[in-house]
Computed example of a mutant assay.
Amino acid sequence: MTDDLLTLARDTALAAGELVKRRRAEGVTVADLKSSPVDVVTNADRESEALIRSILARARPNDGFFGEEGASGIAEQDAGTSGLTWIVDPIDGTVNYLYDIPHYAISIAVVEGTPDPLTWTALAGCVLNPASGELYTATPGGGAFLGEQRLAVAPAVELSQALVGTGFSYSSQTRAHQGRVVARLLPEVRDIRRMGAAALDLCAVASGRLNAYYERGLSPWDHAAAALIAREAGALVVGENGRPPSKEFILAGEESVVRALELRLLHFGV
């Protein structure tokens, strides 16, 4: 069953990827604002979600759906009756997409349960970067892949040698605090990367391009697929106080790096 779900997720992501890549070539403008003046949504976000939703509904009409944009541009949930829910980010990294920075993604996951990362069980996940064509996939116990290549996290390193990814909130007050944390962390690691697409950051952990990644404030669609991919590549993916990752906190990487980084972040008040 999980293989069939993954095939559907992959085929749907590829179809949406063609759409958003075409729209990017035609030119993109801001359609609306969400949580702040810098939290934008484009028409392509909405078109992508509508396409994904229609493909999934035709294939699996009884499944639930939870997408970032919704019909009115606001996240909304359809519960469904099958016990499965599709968690969708139609364009992760919309600001990158707006500026034509080729680092954005379509993220599609299917989970058993409700769209609550504290309780769901992820069954399949797919993350596609339409600009590069890189396609990440995973199923529980089936491993994580970039195309046909099986993925594994980078080997253990001392924290001082770790390349760490993070992201920032759309709230200016929260961003100011996050900046202070980064300023304290920076001298203690190899370097920091802030690339602007959480799903791709987690996939970078899975592929060994980052040693670790952390962030607060992610929504379920930001990490539903990519956390599974990172975990299947051997990463430890944790939330706050040992709980599963959620909006409160997510930290991923090789286990010893995660444990060392977690201590520093707690000390800095992340």
Rank of each mutant, 00 (worst) to 15 (best):
R209D: 08
E134Q: 15
A156E: 12
H103G: 00
G27P: 13
V164H: 01
E248C: 05
G239K: 05
F65L: 05
Q77M: 08
S54G: 07
A105F: 00
G70N: 01
L266P: 00
D89I: 12
I91Y: 04
V189K: 08
V38C: 06
R10N: 02
A122N: 08
A124P: 01
L51W: 03
T2M: 14
D11W: 13
R10A: 11
V237F: 04
A226V: 08
I106M: 09
I106F: 05
W86A: 01
S172R: 15
T42V: 13
G67I: 03
D100K: 14
N129R: 06
L163S: 01
D92W: 08
A131T: 06
D11L: 12
I55G: 00
T137Q: 12
R175V: 09
A109L: 02
L228C: 06
G125K: 09
L19M: 10
G147P: 13
S48T: 03
F168V: 14
V38I: 15
H103A: 04
P187W: 09
V238H: 00
D89Q: 10
L265M: 08
E69Y: 07
G239V: 09
L135W: 04
V238W: 01
W120E: 01
L236F: 00
A131L: 03
L200M: 10
V153L: 03
E26D: 14
G143H: 05
S246F: 10
A225I: 14
T114W: 11
R22A: 14
D63L: 01
N62M: 06
R10T: 12
L84C: 01
R193L: 03
S35I: 14
V181E: 07
R193Q: 07
R23G: 02
Y99C: 10
D45F: 09
T121D: 10
Y170C: 14
A176H: 13
S48Y: 05
E49W: 01
L202I: 13
N96R: 11
A197C: 15
G93K: 13
V40P: 05
E158D: 14
E26S: 15
A233V: 01
P102S: 07
P187R: 12
Y99I: 12
P155H: 02
L128H: 05
A59N: 03
H223W: 14
G17R: 12
G27E: 12
H267F: 06
D201E: 15
A44S: 15
T94H: 09
L185A: 03
V95F: 10
Y170I: 15
Y213A: 07
E188S: 13
L159C: 02
A199Y: 12
P102E: 09
R10C: 07
E262T: 04
V182K: 13
L185F: 02
S169Q: 11
D191W: 01
D3N: 13
V28M: 13
V182Q: 09
G141P: 07
H223F: 15
A226E: 04
V153F: 00
S160Q: 11
G133H: 11
V238G: 00
